[in-house]
């Protein structure tokens, strides 16, 4: 069982747990996840949202939607949680080096993409244009806003944050994130794209990226399925020929596009 260093409430229903890594934890790559365990309640797969180079804390940005996450929400600096990990295939950061990068996030989907941003920033010159398009529900639901806007102002990562609806006081963009892909300036053949959000948002986003001329195999999506054991043994995250916990959660869009467009598969 691991110590919780800190709990931070990010928005009304999203919080971030900062957990001390278990002894011997090997570190993680952007896009990987941990299994967090609350005794008496169960385990949940939670993507890691912090800086991969920070070996003192494992950040997990969590939306309280299930039994386990609802309990995690009540944790504080005096509590413990079980941590197993890291699991899963990470984002193809190496493949993005020397190329333009388009990162598209929807809702809590920004969480597993933030480690990509930290990694890019640690060696910014190694990448071409880097665009982040991030869609949230309302301005109050935007995660990591200060950090993202700081990177934007410094000219490190060109960022568009858009919301589905806003009060008149909001001066930013309103509209779905897919609408903004057309404006992104990249060399399509030489661009890697990473998308994380609800499946339908990923499908439409991928469609826009394809229209832009980015090859299908250079587009990557992060899939969500029921992950129980994280070791490809329990059968729950089975997705066509894949186990999402082992073969994903990050997939090439070209490998999963037909399965994604089959309802309830």
């Amino acid at each position: 069982m691991c110590d919780i260093n800190r709990r931070q409430q990010d928005t009304e229903d999203v919080f971030t747990l900062d957990i001390a890594p278990p002894p011997g934890y090997p570190g993680f790559a952007p896009g990987q996840f941990n299994m967090l365990y609350v005794p008496g309640v169960g385990e949940a797969a939670i993507s890691i949202s912090g800086d991969p180079q920070d070996s003192y804390r494992l950040l997990h940005t969590i939306r309280a939607v299930g039994d386990v996450t609802a309990q995690l929400r009540n944790k504080d600096g005096r509590s413990h949680v079980g941590v197993r990990g890291p699991f899963g295939k990470p984002w193809p950061i190496e493949a993005a080096r020397g190329r333009d990068l388009v990162i598209v996030a929807g809702g809590i989907g920004i969480a597993p993409l933030r480690p990509v941003l930290y990694t890019v920033l640690s060696d910014r010159a190694a990448y071409g244009n880097v665009h982040l398009l991030y869609g949230a529900r309302t301005p109050r639901d935007i995660l990591y806003q200060d950090e993202l806007m700081q990177w934007h102002r410094q000219g490190e990562i060109s960022t568009t944050i858009t919301v589905d609806a806003a009060k008149p006081s909001w001066k930013g963009d309103v509209g779905v994130v897919t609408r903004y892909i057309g404006r992104v300036r990249v060399d399509p053949e030489n661009t890697v794209a990473m998308i994380c959000g609800p499946e339908i948002m990923m499908r439409y986003t991928a469609g826009e990226l394809l229209l832009k001329g980015i090859p299908m195999r250079q587009i990557h999506v992060s899939m969500e399925r029921h992950m129980k054991c994280a070791a490809a043994l329990c059968g729950h995250c089975q997705f066509g020929p894949y186990f999402v916990c082992r073969d994903g959660p990050v997939f090439r869009y070209s490998d999963v596009a037909p399965l994604m467009s089959t309802a309830e598969f």
């Binding site: 809702g107 809590i108 869609g135 949230a136 529900r137 589905d164 779905v176 609800p198 339908i200 439409y204």
Partner: peptide
């Protein structure tokens, strides 16, 4: 047509509590 597509996605309120 493109705006309608976008509106449909917006309509789903994808990031809201399901």
């Amino acid at each position: 047509a493109r705006r309608l597509d976008a509106t449909r996605i917006q309509l789903l309120d994808l990031y809201g509590q399901l």
